[in-house]
Design a protein around this nucleic acid. Structure first.
Lengths: 177, 177, 177, 177
DNA sequence: TTTT
DNA sequence: TTTT
């Protein structure tokens, strides 16, 4: 009846966008979210790697502006889907269907090693450094993604989801909205 | 860096409690959370079944007061653990480590299969229908679970996690706090 | 950049609905949310009373199905508005603009003191006891509110917001969507 | 019964720390949180200014590492307190009692007014840009705040809450834990 | 001014 | 299979 998730973490890789047969954009990426504690051991596992899925306009904005390593906030809901694998066994996949993604780092670092981040309130330069994007039922117009300082990447030349070994079975039926 | 989940749904079964070798109580249950939309088809899949894990005092309170079908709110964080299965393949398991569970239905059902719901305000019995329990770093004293109108069940006679086919590999190392 | 609130509590009174001059429905109510601790004293203040505002279709569903005392989940964002009072002083008002409201108690108690709550998964009666309603950019079609077991109240005979002493200054400009 | 808030925004000023008579540290600051839409008008009000309160160790970490303009994530609960003002009128104050604060920008700004943002990964300085701090019932040991690249400020020479016109009436009784 |  |  209520299903809400909010995460802040970093992309483990560049996002991957593809289109469903029906032409709907879908982008996936994984967020590394540091745990709030240091596990018993030492250099034990100390982050959770959480798969994120975005659809439509939000998918395109994410594909254009997010990159590996970027600090990112994600709001959405948990979805558990399942499919039969090649051995006839049912596999369960848990993902966050995001309806709101905030880019917490601008990412224009073409000419220098230091990331500039988002501009301060009250600074004189009028540059809103942190872009953002929201999706959902509206699922149509971009909202602020374009305000990001980053340079959009042309995805046309990429083969999204060119087989990476993982089964890909997202279809229009999975449409969350 | 931030990882917060809030769910409201119903238990698919009675919760299962066991103790780690170190004597720490751990309780698992699954929450069926209705999706906010009706998927393309008709009577298609319209709920997510989300595994919840609770530890220590909260585990005991959940085992004592939660039952199949009860409407329940869960607050916690997403955790992704993995293990090697018998075929040497890495399996990823996503669970919610709960630190706050709210019993939204009291569960005193004197005479029948129908759950009577929470909060009998206006009824004459002065019973505060909604119990609750909170865990976390404090992980020690019960907080309000005892206010529930439900009757605690003696778990001693149960064989917690008596093999249901799923691999059980929670250990003290998984301790989230 | 991100503003999310989730509350579970009980209505302190019946909700109040009115229409803006532009004909947009707006409903207000207050949620009493018990605090997770007992304050130093004894029978000291132990709940927060949090004002909720809903708009459009969600406003109408809330006005029709929510009642004083009902256990309710609210999802939304914090909004701080301000106005000049009659003494020329600026007054700040903090409210939750809800975009998702879940009715955790059905509320049909016409013929008996016991509240029946929401039906269980797996029960045979096909009655989904807990209604719900979601708003937002969609802001159009009712979503499940009608599934509630409660009987809608005819609001026509009420004078919504008939001056209760509180300044009423919500206008179309406050429209959150 | 459940009361959870998550915000991402920027500090409108440097945080202000003081101690209660009982010697408990309390820090306040205001977060400017951009609204997800542009209000009817044009350059109309488009942010909410939300007061945050932190206690104990978290208060000290916030006072040491947060500064005006910094992008910050806050997790906590809404609290509504009230007091009688000098005209004998009851005034209601809504604040977020934070139990988790994440510093999304490091704040080492060697040479100038521009904040340089977080997480200089890729830069040569090995600095983990995002500090964080968590409070709550544990309320004792610092958790990671020290990983921030910022330089702690000595607060001793400041007169915390030197009258800024706002009534100050936080007392030990308000202790949320 | 508050709910159970 | 992972980020900083």
């Amino acid at each position: 009846m209520l299903n809400r998730v909010i995460l802040i973490g970093r992309l483990t890789k560049d996002p991957e966008m593809r289109y469903t047969p029906a032409g709907v954009a879908v982008t996936q990426f994984t967020l590394a979210v540091d745990r709030p504690f240091t596990s018993g051991g030492q250099n034990e596992r100390e982050a959770d790697f959480i798969p994120i899925v975005t659809w439509r306009q939000l998918a395109e904005t994410c594909a254009n502006y997010l990159r590996k390593g970027r600090l990112t906030a994600v709001e959405g809901r948990i979805q558990v889907r399942n499919y039969e694998n090649n051995e006839g066994k049912r596999v369960y996949v848990t993902e966050i269907i995001a309806d709101n993604v905030r880019f917490l780092e601008s990412g224009n670092r073409e000419n220098g090693p230091r990331d500039e981040g988002a501009a301060s309130y009250g600074s004189g330069n009028g540059n809103y450094g942190g872009g953002n994007s929201q999706g959902g039922t509206s699922g149509g117009n971009p909202q602020g993604g374009g305000r990001s300082g980053g340079t959009p990447r042309n995805n046309n030349s990429r083969d999204p989801f060119s087989d990476d070994g993982r089964p890909i079975d997202i279809s229009e039926d999975d449409l969350p909205f």
